[in-house]
Amino acid sequence: QIFVKTLTGKTITLEVEPSDTIENVKAKIQDKEGIPPDQQRLIFAGKQLEDGRTLSDYNIQKESTLHLVL
């Protein structure tokens, strides 16, 4: 699982696999929060994550925290 922290300070927990794409993660966030993926920007280690890449591409491991910017 990974954590996604929103600007409001809320933390969302997501069940993911390293092979999941960023697009996939955004879809999971939409399921939980109702935020359309095209409004979501995910930041990890100061980098904006691209939809077509996977979590493992960015070396995002379990218990990692991503930041969600709208």
Results as ranks from 00 to 15, higher is better:
I2W: 02
E33M: 13
D57C: 04
E15Y: 14
E15N: 13
E23Y: 15
G9T: 03
K5D: 04
D20G: 03
K62H: 15
V16Y: 15
D31T: 10
T65M: 10
K32C: 10
G52E: 10
G52W: 12
V4E: 01
H67K: 07
N59A: 08
N59L: 07
Q61M: 10
L66M: 05
T6A: 05
K28V: 04
E33C: 15
Q40K: 02
Q40F: 15
I12P: 00
L55K: 00
T54S: 08
V69W: 10
I22M: 04
L70M: 11
T54F: 06
L70G: 08
L14T: 02
K62F: 15
F44L: 05
E50A: 08
I2T: 02
E33L: 14
L42T: 00
D51A: 07
Q39E: 09
D57Q: 07
P18E: 09
Q48K: 08
A27W: 14
Q61W: 08
T8I: 08
F44E: 01
G9R: 04
V25H: 00
Q48G: 07
L7C: 15
Q39A: 08
L7P: 13
I2E: 00
I22F: 03
E33G: 05
L7V: 15
L7W: 15
K28M: 14
K32P: 02
V69C: 13
Q30D: 05
S64T: 07
I60V: 08
K32M: 11
L42G: 00
S64E: 08
L7Y: 15
E63I: 04
P36K: 07
D20K: 02
K32G: 04
F3L: 06
T8H: 13
L42K: 00
E33A: 10
T21E: 03
Q30I: 03
T6F: 15
I12C: 03
D31I: 13
A45I: 06
L55S: 01
L7N: 14
K10D: 08
E17I: 10
Q39D: 07
K10Q: 09
T54I: 06
E23W: 15
D51V: 06
F3Q: 05
G34R: 06
T11E: 06
A45M: 15
E33T: 13
Q48E: 14
F3V: 05
F44V: 03
Q30G: 07
L7M: 15
I22A: 02
L7G: 14
D31M: 12
Q1E: 08
K28S: 04
V69R: 09
Q48M: 12
V25K: 00
K28D: 02
D51R: 04
L49Y: 01
V69L: 12
K62P: 15
L66C: 01
E63K: 08
D38W: 13
I29V: 05
V25D: 00
T54G: 03
D38N: 11
P18Q: 09
G9Q: 04
E23M: 15
K32D: 03
Q30T: 10
N24Q: 14
I35A: 04
D38F: 12
G34N: 08
V4M: 02
Q39W: 10
L14P: 00
I12S: 02
Q48C: 15
V25L: 12
Q48Y: 13
E63H: 14
T21N: 04
E33F: 11
V16W: 13
A27E: 10
D38V: 09
L70K: 07
V69H: 12
E23L: 12
K28E: 03
P37Y: 13
D38P: 08
N24E: 15
V4F: 03
E63R: 07
G9A: 04
I12R: 02
A45C: 14
T65Y: 08
L70N: 09
R53T: 06
T6Y: 13
K28A: 07
I12E: 01
R53Y: 14
K5E: 07
E15A: 10
T13N: 06
Y58H: 03
Q40G: 03
P18H: 07
L55H: 00
V16G: 03
L66I: 12
S19A: 08
T21H: 04
L70Y: 11
Q40T: 05
L70V: 12
G46E: 05
Y58C: 05
L49M: 06
K10L: 10
G9M: 04
E50F: 07
Q40E: 02
D38E: 12
Q61F: 09
A27N: 12
N24S: 14
F44D: 01
Q1G: 05
I12A: 02
S56C: 08
G46H: 06
L49P: 01
I22Y: 01
K47S: 08
P18I: 12
N24P: 00
L70F: 10
S19C: 14
T11V: 14
G9H: 05
L42W: 01
E23V: 08
Q1F: 15
E15H: 13
N24G: 09
Q48R: 08
P36S: 08
D31K: 12
T21W: 05
F3A: 04
K47C: 12
G34I: 02
Q39M: 11
H67I: 13
A45T: 05
Q40L: 06
V16L: 07
